[in-house]
Amino acid sequence: MRPTPTLAALSTTAACLVALTATSCSSDSGAAEPPDTPAVPTGVTVYTSSSTSAHVMWNRSAAAEEIRRYEVYRNGTKIQNVPAAKHMVDITGLKPSTSYTFSVRARDADGKVSGAGKATPVTTPSADSDDSKPPTRPATLKARADGPRSATLTWTKAEDNKGITSYDIFQEGTKIHSVGGTKTTASVTTLRPGTRYTFTVKARDAADNSGPDSPPATVTTEPAPEGKARAELPTDLQATAKKEAGAWSLDLVWNAPKAGGDITEYEVYLNGKFGSKLVLGESAPKETGRINLPLEKQEKATYAVKVRAKLPDGKWGPFTKEVEVTAGS
């Protein structure tokens, strides 16, 4: 049995997932894995974002609902844990003009881990200490919906005195992905049907200078086919009033929505107003949410409670139906 590695903290960032239209620069190992072991993640691709950083991405596991997290290895040593809802990560702290290899393993809820597959090589560009001039902005950015859950972004090439090493893609101000400096298009995936998204793009050079934002591009995904919409609501919300040490509180519990990845953040509203936020850590159970809300009023009162989840694409999902509960003396 393999030892279980220490979990590393990873901040949860927005939300949508982006995959390049380009194919991977290496093939994955075809070696057979032991029975019941997660499949080796395929399509591992690495782009240098600057002389000291790289962007690693891979295809989601075929059995994505069984994967708890992905583990990223640099030169054979694990350096990062990535939540199952993501399939890309930025790696920083690299050295200029240095060769590295990256590979990815999948770990399921039972702790079983896949093989690493064939490592993907990359060499960081050299650093130019005299390069303080940032790239220009991409002059145009266009977004086209490709169905209910994906869109294609296309932009004009930026200019730089030393050369562009990458383009950073932002969704409503939050960086969600990077692509190589020779690319001017990317496919944005795992979006929600019938939802409006706004994107911008920045160019970056080897000295890590970032240029200005491109003009924004807005797109609305197509509606979901009849009967095909993915569940985005927390289910089975239950609210219980209880009194402890003379003080009343509400105990809330619900099941996580089946939205294609772990849900790590919820908002709770009482009587139509924001009441509390629940943020789940790396090791917290992701199948359910639970929170206890102290009540200021001690006289008898009825509360209407509803909950919504922040989905893997970074958008807030719809609220549950309100559940009423009475508390107080």
Rank of each mutant, 00 (worst) to 15 (best):
Arg2Cys: 04
Pro5Arg: 10
Ala9Leu: 13
Leu17Ser: 15
Thr23Met: 10
Ala31Lys: 14
Glu33Cys: 02
Pro35Gly: 09
Pro38Thr: 08
Pro38Asp: 08
Thr42Val: 05
Gly43Ile: 02
Thr48Phe: 10
Ser53Glu: 14
Ser53Gln: 11
Met57Asn: 08
Ser61Tyr: 01
Glu71Tyr: 00
Asn75Gln: 07
Val82Tyr: 04
Ala85Phe: 09
Ala85Asp: 12
Val89Cys: 13
Val89Trp: 13
Phe102Trp: 04
Asp110Cys: 02
Asp110Gly: 12
Val113Ala: 12
Gly115Met: 03
Val122Met: 08
Ser126Glu: 09
Asp128Cys: 00
Thr136Trp: 03
Thr140Pro: 06
Asp146Gly: 10
Thr152Pro: 01
Leu153Trp: 03
Lys157Ile: 04
Asn161Cys: 04
Phe170Asn: 14
Gln171Thr: 07
Lys175Gly: 06
Ser178Glu: 12
Ser187Leu: 03
Val188Asp: 04
Thr189Phe: 00
Thr189Ile: 15
Thr190Leu: 07
Tyr197Met: 12
Ala207Tyr: 09
Asn209Pro: 05
Ser214Met: 07
Ala217Tyr: 08
Glu222Arg: 10
Pro223Trp: 10
Arg230Met: 15
Ala241Lys: 05
Ala241Gly: 10
Lys243Pro: 03
Ala247Tyr: 02
Asn255Phe: 08
Lys258Asp: 14
Gly260His: 07
Gly260Ile: 15
Gly261Gln: 11
Glu265Met: 09
Gly272Asp: 10
Phe274Glu: 09
Lys277Trp: 01
Val279Trp: 04
Ala284Phe: 00
Arg290Glu: 12
Asn292Ser: 15
Leu295Asn: 01
Lys297Ser: 11
Gln298Glu: 08
Gln298Gly: 02
Lys300Trp: 01
Leu311Ile: 02
Gly314Glu: 14
Gly317Ser: 06
Phe319Thr: 09
Val323Gln: 12
Gly328Tyr: 07
Ser329Pro: 14
